[in-house]
Computed example of a mutant assay.
Amino acid sequence: MEDFLLTDQDRATLQYKVTTKLREVILKGDFKLGDRLIQEEWATKLGVSRMPIREALRQLEVEGLVRIEPRRGAIVTPISISDIEEIYQLRTLLEGEAVERSLPFLEEDDITELESLYSQMISLNNTEKDVEEFMKLNAEFHRILRHGCPWRRIHSMIDTLWKGIPLYTPSLLSNHIKEAHQEHKQMVEFIRQNEPKKLRRIMEKHILRTRDNLIRMIEKKDVEKD
């Protein structure tokens, strides 16, 4: 069994760390559909009280990774390949449309901020702390890319799809971050060149590549179980 015990340094951001650990073991396939995630067991494994476990489970329920049932507790509902296909196909359609419509409305300050975020991302290493920082910068990069889109409803739909796995994908696929850097660089270049259709295509490629890598990760985990 993997050693999940959190260090003293981890406790500086305890709630975030507990939620991240539990999310990772679910997304990486350590549980099967219907398995119980027992608070007492995970409090012991992580070296924390039950309170942060309870709060983490509430967040994971919002993300659709667990279901809280009376008298049974947290029931794991892991992401399937079908879920990945649905989430990322919808993201491709919606975010491709959003960034294409956003570009004409982006101002110089927006573009400068995107360039700054890109520079910060490529300066990071592959440590756990840097991957966490990359996730925050990446989410903000994508938000600014699409925030100029005048369609109000598309933003709420994209925000819903981003809850859960898309936000935390870099922690699962940290060995693919270099590919993300190249795609982010192209996005900034196409914005500077005022090429909305090219921006849309690279965004679609970016999302579909991530989808394919996630599916391969799940398939590999399934093979290892057999």
Score class of each variant (00 low, 15 high):
residue 148 G to V: 07
residue 148 G to T: 11
residue 148 G to S: 12
residue 148 G to R: 07
residue 149 C to P: 14
residue 149 C to A: 11
residue 149 C to M: 05
residue 151 W to A: 09
residue 151 W to Y: 09
residue 152 R to H: 04
residue 152 R to V: 15
residue 152 R to Q: 08
residue 152 R to C: 05
residue 153 R to C: 03
residue 153 R to G: 14
residue 153 R to A: 07
residue 153 R to D: 13
residue 154 I to W: 13
residue 154 I to H: 13
residue 155 H to D: 11
residue 155 H to T: 04
residue 156 S to Y: 04
residue 156 S to D: 06
residue 156 S to Q: 04
residue 156 S to K: 05
residue 157 M to C: 01
residue 157 M to L: 15
residue 158 I to V: 10
residue 159 D to S: 07
residue 159 D to W: 02
residue 159 D to V: 13
residue 159 D to Q: 10
residue 160 T to L: 04
residue 160 T to V: 00
residue 160 T to C: 00
residue 160 T to K: 05
residue 161 L to A: 03
residue 161 L to F: 03
residue 161 L to Y: 02
residue 162 W to M: 14
residue 163 K to H: 01
residue 164 G to Q: 06
residue 164 G to F: 02
residue 165 I to E: 14
residue 165 I to F: 02
residue 166 P to I: 05
residue 167 L to M: 09
residue 167 L to V: 05
residue 167 L to Q: 06
residue 167 L to G: 01
residue 169 T to L: 10
residue 169 T to F: 06
residue 169 T to W: 03
residue 170 P to R: 08
residue 170 P to E: 06
residue 170 P to A: 07
residue 171 S to T: 07
residue 172 L to Q: 01
residue 172 L to D: 02
residue 172 L to S: 03
residue 173 L to C: 05
residue 173 L to N: 11
residue 174 S to F: 13
residue 174 S to G: 00
residue 174 S to D: 10
residue 175 N to F: 03
residue 175 N to S: 08
residue 176 H to W: 15
residue 176 H to A: 01
residue 177 I to Y: 15
residue 177 I to K: 14
residue 178 K to Q: 10
residue 178 K to D: 03
residue 179 E to Q: 08
residue 179 E to H: 09
residue 180 A to R: 10
residue 180 A to F: 12
residue 180 A to Q: 14
residue 180 A to P: 02
residue 182 Q to F: 12
residue 182 Q to C: 02
residue 183 E to Y: 09
residue 183 E to K: 09
residue 184 H to W: 14
residue 184 H to N: 08
residue 185 K to A: 13
residue 185 K to D: 08
residue 186 Q to N: 08
residue 186 Q to P: 00
residue 186 Q to G: 02
residue 187 M to D: 08
residue 187 M to W: 14
residue 187 M to K: 14
residue 187 M to I: 03
residue 187 M to C: 12
residue 188 V to E: 12
residue 188 V to Q: 06
residue 188 V to Y: 12
residue 189 E to Y: 00
residue 189 E to A: 07
residue 189 E to G: 04
residue 189 E to R: 06
residue 189 E to T: 09
residue 190 F to K: 10
residue 191 I to D: 13
residue 191 I to W: 14
residue 191 I to F: 12
residue 192 R to K: 07
residue 192 R to G: 03
residue 193 Q to A: 15
residue 193 Q to Y: 01
residue 194 N to Y: 03
residue 194 N to Q: 15
residue 194 N to W: 03
residue 194 N to P: 00
residue 195 E to F: 01
residue 195 E to P: 00
residue 196 P to L: 04
residue 196 P to F: 06
residue 197 K to W: 04
residue 198 K to P: 01
residue 198 K to A: 15
residue 198 K to V: 02
residue 199 L to G: 00
residue 199 L to F: 08
residue 200 R to M: 06
residue 201 R to A: 15
residue 201 R to P: 03
residue 201 R to S: 15
residue 202 I to N: 05
residue 203 M to H: 00
residue 203 M to D: 04
residue 203 M to A: 08
residue 204 E to Y: 02
residue 204 E to S: 04
residue 204 E to C: 06
residue 204 E to W: 03
residue 205 K to M: 08
residue 206 H to Y: 15
residue 206 H to K: 06
residue 206 H to M: 04
residue 206 H to W: 11
residue 207 I to A: 09
residue 207 I to P: 12
residue 207 I to L: 14
residue 207 I to C: 10
residue 208 L to P: 15
residue 208 L to A: 09
residue 208 L to R: 07
residue 209 R to T: 11
residue 209 R to E: 13
residue 209 R to C: 05
residue 210 T to W: 04
residue 210 T to V: 11
residue 210 T to H: 00
residue 210 T to L: 13
